[in-house]
Amino acid sequence: MGELVDFFIRSRHFILFVLLEVLCFYFIINTSNYWGVTYFNTSNRYAAKVLAWSNAANEYARLREVNADLALENQRLNAQITQLLQSKPAAPAAYQADSTFAKRFKFTVAKVLNNTTQLANNYITIDKGTDDGIRPGMAVISPTGLVGKVSVCSPHFSYIISILHSEFLVSSRLVKANEIGSSKWDGMNPRLIKMIDVRRDKPVEKGDSVVTSGFSLTFPPGILIGRVRTTGVQPNQTFHDLTVDLATDFSNLAFVYVIENLLQPEQEKLEKQIEKEK
């Protein structure tokens, strides 16, 4: 306490000077309209800047929470869209899928913890595992398109084989051309993928959407893979040479959705039973 008193005593002239300056400034503002208006406008301008910086900092701090909320909302919307597509498949008008079939896909949102894009065989790690109902073989998509397939699980984490993997192959369909083929990464550009086994007698246009065909127990039909970037013909082959822009930006992947086919065990059991009887 004594040191504080000593400080004020030593600095009494400077403190008095500051108090007098403040008092003069106060009188100038209150006795002159010009300086009063100038002070008011200047103070408001700087106060607005400080408030804008404060709001920007608060919004940035809430981005993680906002992203998580958006991921949950996308999970709900993906489930509704898939259910709608399954209830009205591309089939004769007389066909009507039952409610169980239409609701066969379940979506679980997960956060990406690790992700590679420059290897020959790329992988992704997410923060959901067997305790969350995740198991090997489940499909994985992003808010914009296909991602890969679950390979290995622990109670709290899962290891996903990315579509950017030398052994990943998915049955695909060209929307406009209505032609079935397969999508496979050639190990070159992480933004591009090849679509193979599309017959050359079928016309293919640039910009045509490539989606999952539905001929799979893993992926729901209609999941966007990408759009045709270039078309050509493989030398001495009867197939198109198609390069596709991937719909998913793997360099900026934050959340994914793991898809469970609730009817997959039943279908697999039936198919295995038929194979044994042949």
Rank of each mutant, 00 (worst) to 15 (best):
W35F: 15
Q273V: 02
T231A: 03
L262I: 00
I196R: 05
P190L: 03
T108L: 14
F250I: 02
V228H: 02
S154D: 11
T243A: 08
K194Q: 14
L72M: 11
V210A: 03
A177L: 01
T218F: 07
F105E: 08
V150E: 09
V258K: 04
G207R: 03
K103E: 09
I180V: 13
D186G: 11
F168Q: 00
I193S: 01
A110F: 10
V211A: 00
F40A: 15
A93V: 11
E59F: 10
M188F: 13
S172L: 09
G133L: 06
K278G: 13
Y46C: 07
F255N: 09
H165G: 04
L217C: 01
D69N: 12
F8E: 06
K149D: 00
A97L: 05
V5M: 09
S154I: 06
P155F: 00
T248K: 03
L224M: 12
Q80S: 10
Y34E: 10
C24Y: 14
E179F: 04
R173I: 05
Q264S: 14
P136N: 02
E268K: 15
Y95A: 03
I160M: 07
I29K: 06
S162Q: 07
V170R: 02
Q118R: 13
V256Q: 03
L192Y: 02
C24E: 10
N261S: 01
T231L: 01
V233F: 15
R62S: 15
G36R: 09
V258G: 04
Y159R: 11
E167T: 15
Y34F: 14
E179T: 07
Y60M: 12
C153E: 07
T238W: 05
A254Q: 14
G214P: 07
C24D: 12
C24F: 15
A47F: 12
S158Q: 03
S54R: 10
K269G: 08
L85E: 14
K176F: 02
T82M: 10
Q75L: 11
K206R: 13
I160L: 02
S162K: 09
A93N: 11
A52L: 13
N178F: 09
D132W: 02
K206E: 12
H156M: 12
L63N: 12
T144L: 03
Q234K: 14
Y159C: 08
L72I: 03
T144C: 00
L51P: 05
L217G: 15
A254W: 08
D69C: 09
G145V: 05
D245T: 00
I274C: 05
L51A: 15
E275H: 08
A68N: 08
T212H: 04
W35A: 06
V22G: 10
S142Y: 03
G129K: 05
L19M: 11
I81L: 14
D127L: 04
Q75Y: 05
P220V: 03
E268V: 14
A120V: 11
R76S: 13
A94M: 09
R64P: 03
V50L: 12
I126E: 00
R76P: 04
A97C: 05
L253T: 05
V50M: 12
L19N: 04
T130Y: 08
P143E: 12
Q118V: 11
N41H: 12
K206Q: 13
A71K: 00
T243K: 10
F219T: 07
I259T: 01
L20V: 15
T31N: 13
P136H: 02
K202P: 00
